[in-house]
Amino acid sequence: MSYPIKRLLVFPLVMLGVSVFVFIAIRLVPGDAITAMLGTESGLLTPAQRDALSAYFGLDQNWFIQFWRWFAGVLQGNFGISTTYGKPVMTIIWQHFPLTLELAILSMLIALSIGIPAGIYAAAHKDRPSDLILRIVAMFGQSTPSFVVGLLLIYLLSVGFGVLPEMGTFVPITEDPLANLAQMILPAITLGTAFAAAVIRMSRSTMLDILQEDYVRTARSKGMSRRRVIWRHALPNALIPVITLSGVEFGYLLGGAVLVEQIFALPGLGRTVLDAILQRDYALVQGSVLFIAFNFMIVNLLVDLAYAALDPRIRFETK
């Protein structure tokens, strides 16, 4: 049986685990959906009205029954109704997810396209000033929290240059790609900084190791130029750990999106989840987290496939 299919078979198990975990975690947070929904007005409810509302949302049952009802729905593709929006959870997710996905992909592109060349450059110029500078930059990039980067960027652009990023109404990429990109570029840089820094460090250190490998010496003994040795022989090997890193970092990007969307007032899934948590919108939190977990797994499956495409040793071992 082929490797990707084997991996797909594990998906349902992980999804079940994630479901149980989120279901319990959100219920451990004090407060309840009805109070959160109605605010101070909830004090005016009679016990009977409150019970009626609880029964309407199914919150009067114990956790097992609640979980079972929800999970049985999920299995049939029904993620339930959001208490805050009064709409099906799936509809809301599809409304907000494209933005978060775009944000994650953009920041990944930025991080990889800056990080890999910079890391290779640093490795090729080991211990020279350019390497030292890149290492310091990478360390700062990795240790500065993304909200600080975001706020700094906004401050620099608005106060320093008088350019204010367009943050009014969000323009989807399907309507006006350029305007959309103008809106997304700052958040993407903010989100991608730490990732880019990690990629610089990872690609620099693997590149340094690989440049000491016997096969690199062989390539040199063939009379290849420094540049060719690096791009043709060393790079494919150095990419393998960077790709692994990308898969893991993708999870952080989805998590980091919660913060960045908040800072830049973007109506993405991250922000929706945050609101849903504050509103105790159980169905929406569960549905969104499950959805994000699913995406994370898909990305890591793709990572493994990319791995196999790069490294023949892996391709044949899975036979």
Binding site: E213, D214, Y215, R217, T218, A219, H233, P236, N237, L310, D311, P312, R313
Partner: peptide, 9 residues
């Protein structure tokens, strides 16, 4: 064993 690039034929 290590003198040839493992990712190239």
């Amino acid at each position: 064993m290590t003198s040839l690039n493992p990712v190239m034929t």
